[in-house]
């Protein structure tokens, strides 16, 4: 459904240097540097996937989204989405996609949300019955009933983001691009947004591509991760594969009845210790979790025990390290 092949994109950026003399010089002759934003990016995405697109700031995430949504024309390479080349058949193509830029609004600032929806209906020429059915579904599942009559400028960030997502789905897009949909949201709003994304993906088969810095988004949503750094695609695979690649590490947290001495275990690092709780980190290929628990229960009276895997952030940091980003 989505196929990118060898996409390259570079920008000419004016170099700015400090100092008055340099600034004056720049008025007459600017020095330009070529920044390679995307380098030979290729991947394919099948219908119904949720793909998390991650990478540090300035890695090229937004540029890729802009190429895929038809805003930018790449220097070379091919991109076929739903049979269209996004930048060539812009008007016909964008009818099939929804785009949410987390940092910017697509709603009209001073009017009630419902008016913005009405205008979008006309922009996309959505037939009446489709519009009303979608609107009903979206207001119900995103809990918008109480806020659609409110002007956008009076909404909280979480409320606004729910409206943004609704606005991008009114015209039944087959693909949804979400550029940092959870940025700045509180925990409750994040969870609501995630659940909804999951739901429309399941129920309507909408393919979702989301960029984010919040690894919990990825953990909760993405079947597949694409990681980009300095314009190059570094990783393409599932979260579990990424885990097994770096993740033979486990974190064991034990609560026990008061015990006033640390309990050292061979081959295991103790991350923290208190009279009631200790955290250990181990490599299960060297020391299996079971043996650690056995050693522990010999020495302390274990009350509670939790085994965790490496947090996604650390996996990503490992990848960055591996590729020296």
């Amino acid at each position: 459904m989505i196929a990118l092949q060898g996409i390259n994109k570079s920008f000419k950026v004016a170099r700015r240097t400090a100092g008055v003399r340099q600034a004056v010089k720049a008025l007459f002759a600017r020095e330009h540097t070529i920044v390679e934003a995307l380098h030979n990016i290729s991947f394919e995405i099948s219908p119904g996937e949720i793909v998390g697109y991650i990478g540090p700031n300035g890695a090229g995430k937004s540029t890729t989204i802009k190429v895929m949504s038809g805003i930018l024309v790449p220097d070379n390479g091919t991109c076929k989405i739903l049979g269209y080349t996004p930048w060539q058949d812009r008007a016909a193509y964008v009818r099939n996609i929804g785009v949410v830029f987390g940092q910017r609004t697509q709603l009209w600032w001073d009017v009630p949300v419902i008016d913005s929806f009405g205008l979008l209906r006309d922009i996309y020429k959505i037939p009446g019955d489709v519009y009303h059915a979608n609107l009903a579904m979206l207001t119900e599942s995103l809990a918008l009933t109480d806020i659609v009559q409110t002007p956008v400028r009076q909404l909280s960030l979480g409320q606004r983001m729910r409206c943004e997502i609704a606005a991008s789905l009114l015209h039944d897009p087959k693909i949804l691009f979400l550029d940092e949909p959870t940025i700045g949201l509180d925990a409750a709003s994040k969870i609501a947004v995630r659940q909804f994304i999951k739901r429309i993906n399941k129920e309507r088969g909408v393919t979702v591509i989301l960029t984010t810095h919040d690894m919990n988004d990825i953990e909760a949503l993405a079947d597949r991760i694409l990681m980009i750094g300095k314009g190059t695609l570094l990783y393409d695979g599932t979260l579990n594969d990424l885990r097994s690649r770096f993740g033979s590490k486990r974190i064991v947290t034990v609560d026990y009845r008061e015990h006033y001495e640390p309990v050292p275990i061979d081959g295991v690092t103790c991350l923290s210790w208190s009279p009631e709780r200790a955290v250990y980190s181990m490599d299960i290929e060297v020391t299996p979790v079971a043996s650690v628990i056995a050693r522990l229960s010999e020495q302390v009276e274990v009350v509670d025990l939790e085994v965790g895997t490496t947090p996604v952030e650390e996996l990503v940091l490992e990848l960055y390290k591996e590729h020296r980003i």
Partner: peptide, 14 residues
Amino acid sequence: GSGDFDRLLVRPRS
């Protein structure tokens, strides 16, 4: 300047 022109480009109108 604000980048809002991108928004216009993802809508199916001139």
